[in-house]
Design a protein around this nucleic acid. Sequence first.
DNA 1: AAGTTGTTCGCATGATTTGCAAATAAGCAC
DNA 2: GTGCTTATTTGCAAATCATGCGAACAACTT
Lengths: 175, 175
Amino acid sequence: MHSPEIVATKYKEQGRRLTPQRKLLFSLMHNNETHPTAEGLFEVASKRMPGISLRTVYQTLDELSEMGEIQLMHCDGGAVRFDPNVDEHHHAVCAETGELFDVYVDNIDSLRAQLPAGFEVQNVSIVFHGRLANSASGVSRTSRSNTTKSPARQQTVRAKSTKRAPRRTSRGSNT
Amino acid sequence: MHSPEIVATKYKEQGRRLTPQRKLLFSLMHNNETHPTAEGLFEVASKRMPGISLRTVYQTLDELSEMGEIQLMHCDGGAVRFDPNVDEHHHAVCAETGELFDVYVDNIDSLRAQLPAGFEVQNVSIVFHGRLANSASGVSRTSRSNTTKSPARQQTVRAKSTKRAPRRTSRGSNT
DNA sequence: AAGTTGTTCGCATGATTTGCAAATAAGCAC
DNA sequence: GTGCTTATTTGCAAATCATGCGAACAACTT
């Protein structure tokens, strides 16, 4: 997501108005690495601007999304999370804390996948499920403090393949 | 997911009872490649057993999930989809039809990812977003007709990092 | 056949989001 | 600054998806 100033300019250019609510939300989302939900962002925003409506938060997030300033994430079926990082990146989810981290993957192009015939891939999203080994230490889970920022070492993934047995015999025609 | 007979046996072993509803749902899920939602499965089940409750469908799917017979998928924010394929596999979603296909990926271990320090990967899920080149024909989007079946060629992924159109949370018009 | 207890089922409730319309207030013209 | 036009904000209703609960029901046992 661009800086609040740039986003404000884009808004004006589109005939949208600059309201205090929007300005606040721009600044709260800028560089926000917590992947907040609308509700979470609403709570933070409410501290700065008591009375702001959850409806407005949803609306502004939708606008930013339409403008390509933020991304939507449907991670685990709960509320949608919003990510101001629109670079090509992926995510890691800690099963213990539910924290969500940005993950950059170098060589997606090298994946060998058996895609359905005629399927044109436009975009790939990868989610690493796991846990932070040292997540026991006092890591606050208060949505807007820390998240990620960890040194982030480069590594090769080792997904414990619990079971492996390519079986595609089925022909699932409905009833 | 195991055959209805095997699943039935597991049920009995756990002190669970074999009801007509469960038997029906076992058979409807076995080899089902349509990745149905609870609602979708309910509709199909209702034809064979009018009066079956959506509540029962949810409950049975939850049981099967707890027993490791099926997997849950939170794909695009809509309803949870259930997959009787519990092998290590991934998915491809057609942006046009919403169809969902199983995808096997050979070399996940070779991914180079910058994970947060201390993050232990337990499991990786990959979703290929794209479209079927020849999906132009009027394909029903009722989740229970065709799905997969395609020859599935092995290929290397080419994720064009084009920015994808902001997708609204598909919620309405779907029946 | 009768009893025990797991199941089914409908309804209420909860969590997320979105639709709507009235009240409010940006941004523009004087 | 004043007033106007119309985009926004808001609160509330409503839609979607999922789960809790308890009464009625029915598998399985003896």
